[in-house]
Simulated scan of single mutants.
Amino acid sequence: MQANVKWVEGNTFIGRSNSNHNVVFDGGSDSAAPSPMEMVLMSIGCCSSVDVVSILKKAKQDFSNVEVQLTAERAETAPRVFTKVNLHFVATGNNVSEKHLARAVSLSAEKYCSVALMLDKTVKITHSHEVVQDQVK
């Protein structure tokens, strides 16, 4: 895997993946885009979400939405690394099994999500989840 990051101006950078996808980063106070640490946090969420959705589909769960709410704490002094991250999964659907959701979250955390497993060596990563019933229209 390879990537390239190019400075644009100020504190704005564009990352380009080996698969030719571009991502804008903001390394300062310009707020033109997410910071690198925000991107890492969102990467944990995306990586885990891919797993959870895939596992719920294989379990034939009737879900209409899966969202992960990410909360992180950082060290007070430089380097301001993550010290804690919580991933709270909310699966919305018709009779989604809490047991299946718990299993999907657990499998992602313990076996499949390479981003979280890599960061887990230095960051306390926790997971929680809830099932929300689809509103009947």
Rank of each mutant, 00 (worst) to 15 (best):
residue 1 M to K: 05
residue 2 Q to H: 14
residue 2 Q to V: 12
residue 3 A to I: 11
residue 6 K to P: 02
residue 8 V to L: 14
residue 8 V to C: 09
residue 9 E to Y: 06
residue 9 E to G: 08
residue 12 T to A: 04
residue 12 T to H: 03
residue 15 G to T: 09
residue 15 G to W: 07
residue 16 R to L: 10
residue 16 R to Y: 05
residue 19 S to E: 11
residue 20 N to I: 00
residue 21 H to R: 14
residue 22 N to R: 13
residue 22 N to C: 11
residue 23 V to F: 13
residue 24 V to N: 10
residue 28 G to F: 08
residue 28 G to V: 06
residue 31 S to C: 09
residue 32 A to Y: 09
residue 33 A to F: 08
residue 33 A to R: 07
residue 33 A to I: 07
residue 33 A to S: 10
residue 34 P to D: 07
residue 37 M to L: 13
residue 37 M to D: 04
residue 38 E to A: 10
residue 39 M to V: 13
residue 41 L to T: 07
residue 42 M to D: 05
residue 43 S to Y: 02
residue 44 I to T: 14
residue 45 G to S: 07
residue 46 C to D: 01
residue 49 S to C: 02
residue 51 D to K: 06
residue 52 V to R: 03
residue 53 V to W: 03
residue 53 V to K: 08
residue 54 S to K: 08
residue 54 S to V: 04
residue 57 K to Y: 13
residue 57 K to C: 13
residue 58 K to S: 12
residue 58 K to E: 10
residue 59 A to C: 06
residue 59 A to G: 02
residue 59 A to L: 09
residue 59 A to P: 01
residue 66 V to A: 03
residue 66 V to I: 12
residue 69 Q to D: 13
residue 69 Q to H: 14
residue 71 T to C: 00
residue 71 T to E: 11
residue 73 E to D: 14
residue 73 E to I: 07
residue 74 R to T: 10
residue 76 E to K: 11
residue 76 E to D: 15
residue 76 E to A: 15
residue 77 T to I: 10
residue 78 A to E: 15
residue 79 P to K: 13
residue 81 V to L: 13
residue 82 F to A: 05
residue 83 T to R: 09
residue 83 T to N: 10
residue 85 V to I: 15
residue 86 N to F: 03
residue 88 H to T: 04
residue 88 H to V: 01
residue 89 F to E: 00
residue 89 F to A: 00
residue 90 V to N: 06
residue 91 A to L: 07
residue 91 A to K: 03
residue 92 T to Y: 08
residue 93 G to T: 08
residue 95 N to Y: 05
residue 99 K to I: 11
residue 100 H to C: 14
residue 101 L to H: 03
residue 101 L to P: 00
residue 102 A to H: 01
residue 104 A to M: 01
residue 106 S to L: 04
residue 108 S to N: 02
residue 108 S to F: 00
residue 108 S to H: 02
residue 109 A to H: 11
residue 109 A to Y: 03
residue 109 A to G: 11
residue 109 A to V: 06
residue 109 A to F: 04
residue 110 E to V: 01
residue 112 Y to A: 05
residue 112 Y to W: 08
residue 114 S to D: 04
residue 117 L to V: 01
residue 118 M to G: 04
residue 118 M to Y: 03
residue 121 K to S: 14
residue 123 V to S: 00
residue 128 S to T: 07
residue 130 E to C: 06
residue 130 E to P: 06
residue 130 E to R: 05
residue 132 V to L: 12
residue 133 Q to A: 15
residue 135 Q to R: 10
residue 136 V to P: 06
